[in-house]
C-alpha cells in the first residue's frame, strides 16, 4: 500500500525543483524590501509559478 503523501509535502517537493527561479524571485524582492508593492516582481513570480506548475504535473 503506498503511503499517503499530504498535499503540503507534494507542494514542497514541486517547489524544491524550482530553486533557481525561487532564488531569482527572492533576490528581486530583497534588493529593496522597503518599497514592495503588488506585482513588483511579477515576471520573476510568473517564471517561478510556471516552473512549479510544470514540476507539480510530473509524477
Amino acid at each position: 500500500m503506498p503511503t499517503r503523501i499530504s498535499p503540503i509535502e507534494k507542494f514542497a517537493k514541486a517547489a524544491a525543483k524550482c530553486s533557481v527561479e525561487s532564488s531569482a524571485y527572492g533576490k528581486c524582492i530583497v534588493v529593496d524590501y522597503n518599497s514592495v508593492h503588488k506585482d513588483k516582481c511579477l515576471t520573476e513570480f510568473l517564471r517561478l509559478k510556471n516552473c512549479y506548475l510544470a514540476a507539480a504535473k510530473k509524477p
Binding site: 517547489a15 525561487s22 527572492g26 533576490k27 524582492i29 530583497v30 524590501y33 513570480f45
Partner: peptide, 15 residues
Amino acid sequence: QKDVLLANEGIYREL
C-alpha cells in the same frame, strides 16, 4: 494561498 506560500519560500531563503 498557494501563491503566497510559493513566494514566501523564495523570500525567506534570500532574506
